[in-house]
Nucleic acid binder design. Structure first.
Length: 570
RNA sequence: GGCCAGUUCGUCUAACGGUUAGGACUCAAGAUUUUCAUUCUUGCAAUAGGGGUUCGAUUCCCCUACUGGCUACCA
């Protein structure tokens, strides 16, 4: 436990703590005599620079869970003055989706968490190594040759072998086992009876390989070992090697490595210090640990942290694209058009402020231990800690997402909001005075969650009411009202200049000196000007729409001049 | 089925052996306000169950239940 924390500290400090590591090594060896215990602490000669990577697969748009993983990587890197690398894991040629890579890059950019390495300024993946991008290329499909060498190395060391079993034969073995209520495992217990190079001599294997028969390379899981490893979030985990299977490292289908091989090789070559990824990878960690060991890279092996998953708002399982469609909230940061033309909502297009989205994501599975909930990216960078990442999955709550946006909206500058509101008004063909927009926005933004709410919240600033809320009419348009409104009309006509200050108190005084009910008169006036029970103070509204428009609206209110007024025809 | 991880209000979470178990979202009530909203106050609401260890367990250990992930020539 303590060691876990110390290990982390050791890594992120710049001063050498050789003797300290020495102690840890001794403790380890005493403790785990017959077990493989990894990771061992870093070799003190290596650089202690924090280097993390976000390594998505371009099989579709980046899910908000993926964005959160990227965010945590970004925060961790920034906090330690390290590097945040984007690596594209496109070794699955079957599921590759054009445009997904660009989408990922654009999403990170929108969220304000762009990678510092792997992507050049124009948003393209760096292909040629450069001082800024020393490990290019960062697309695994372009690193193919590299992996082959390492796969061969494992075979020649005896840590991996060629397997010739057809997918069909494996499938039937699986079904057989399933029929008996068991699970088929291609591993220590079964591999000797299967069609692979373990039972063949070198000549025979070479012959089989040259015969053009399809082959894969499988990792040879060692037998009867307790594999003990550490996760920065979950602590120590032990797995019995016999329960693992001999995973395919090299595919015959497309002649590319699988995730497991490519991932370990690249993390090593790219000098990754911490692997921060989703919990779905936890079951593969023992395999990865074994791979580091086989390559004898344990001294520079990264530390691992597996993040809890994001769960559906209701029901069972992890958050998926369908939940968004079903419940009406975005699951993706940006809108996505699939190659088939299917459109998925995005937070950006739905009107979310990027920082609100990021803030919400940061608090899913992490918290600083205080009661503060609103954080700038800057603050998050200072406060973030893997120690405070929660272990259990977090159910996503769309309502809380609204709340975050509401919080950010009200602190956003009026001029900035006015600019996006102006676009909205133009689209809706509503004429407006750009000069007045910031003031209007300032009056209504506390009532809104999104900029798009402004439309309904402020319609009366741009157009006179055409309908009058019936309930309000019944409640506030009493028999004596038309007379009083007519009097107020005359009173307002005398006010010059027509500003909030010149209206507010004089009007209140006028009403009071007449010994009228403030509520009754003001509500009736609101009915004339707004047509509904909404909006800021009447003086605010009237000063913005101007004297002329104010008087016109009063005059145009049905029955405002006649007295007594019949309650119809509103 | 097997393996791994998890389990505190409806939801997100705090409390790293001693608290009237705290906060936030949602919901409800009240106050303020010329309306709506904001704001403020209050309320509803939780330690999965069972065993241990301990003076004392949400916290440590074990069992059970449940939840999630993985179990592909996908990542």
């Amino acid at each position: 436990m303590g060691a876990k924390i110390w290990l982390r500290r050791g890594l992120i400090q710049t001063k050498p703590i050789v003797s300290f590591y020495g102690i840890i090594v001794i403790i380890y060896s005493l403790h785990l005599v017959r077990s493989i215990s990894l990771p061992l602490p870093k070799d003190s000669t290596m650089t202690n620079r924090v280097r993390v990577r976000f390594a998505p697969s371009p099989t579709g748009p980046l899910h908000m869970g993926g964005v959160r993983t990227a965010l945590f990587n970004y925060l961790f890197a920034k906090q330690h003055g390290g590097d945040f690398i984007l690596r594209i894991e496109d070794t699955d040629t079957q599921r590759y989706v054009p445009g997904a890579e660009e989408y990922i890059i654009e999403s990170l950019r929108w969220c304000g968490i762009p990678p510092t390495e792997g992507v050049t300024e124009n948003g393209q993946m760096a292909v040629e190594p450069s001082p800024q991008h020393p490990h290019a290329p960062y697309r695994q499909s372009q690193r193919k040759g590299l992996y082959h060498t390492y796969a061969q190395q494992l075979v020649s060391q005896g840590d991996a072998y060629y397997a010739f079993d057809s997918p069909e034969s494996l499938e039937s073995l699986r079904q057989e086992a399933e029929a008996k209520g068991q699970a088929f495992v291609y591993g220590p217990a079964s591999r000797n009876a299967l069609d692979n190079s373990l039972g063949l001599d070198a000549k025979e294997t070479a012959k089989r390989l040259s015969q053009n028969s399809p082959w894969v390379i499988r990792f040879r899981i060692p037998e009867n070992q307790n594999i003990i490893f550490h996760d920065l979030i979950r602590g120590e985990i032990t797995v019995q090697s016999n329960t693992l299977d001999d995973k395919v490292l090299w595919k015959s289908a497309d002649g590319l490595p699988t995730y497991h091989l490519a991932n370990v090789v690249d993390d090593h070559l790219m000098e990754i210090s911490h692997v921060i990824r989703g919990e779905e990878w936890l079951p593969s960690l023992p395999l990865h640990i074994l791979l580091y060991r086989a390559f004898e890279w344990t001294n520079s092996q990264p530390l691992f942290a597996h993040l809890p998953l994001l769960l559906k708002p209701d029901g069972k399982g992890k958050l998926s694209k369908r939940d968004g469609d079903r419940l009406g909230f975005p699951v993706f940061p940006l809108e996505w058009k699939s190659p088939l033309g299917e459109i998925s909502k995005g937070y950006r297009e739905d009107g979310y402020i990027a920082q609100a989205f990021v803030n919400m994501l940061a608090l899913m599975g992490w918290n600083p231990g205080t009661e503060q909930e609103i954080f700038s990216l800057e603050q998050l960078t200072h406060l973030f800690s893997l120690d405070r990442v929660v272990k259990s999955g977090a159910r996503f709550n769309p309502e809380k997402a609204h709340w975050f946006n509401q919080q950010y909206l009200r602190t956003t500058d009026n001029a900035e909001l006015a600019a996006s509101f102006a676009n909205l008004l133009t689209q809706a063909s509503i004429p407006f005075d750009p000069q007045k927009l910031p003031a209007i926005v300032g009056l209504i933004k506390e009532r809104a969650t999104f900029v798009k709410d402004f439309l309904d919240l402020s319609d009366y600033f741009f157009t006179a009411p055409t309908r009058y809320d019936e309930k309000l009419v019944a409640k506030h348009w009493k028999e004596d009202i038309p007379q009083k409104i007519a009097a107020i009309q005359s009173f307002l006509a005398q006010i010059e200049p027509f500003t909030k200050e010149s209206i507010e108190h004089p009007l209140a005084d006028y009403i009071q000196t007449n010994e009228w009910s403030m509520g009754a008169v003001m509500n009736a006036l609101r009915l004339c000007i707004v047509g509904a029970a909404k909006g800021p103070g009447m003086a605010d509204i009237m000063s913005i729409i101007g004297k002329e428009e104010t008087l016109r609206r009063i005059a145009n209110t049905p029955h405002s001049q006649s007295a007594p007024a019949p309650p119809l025809p509103f």
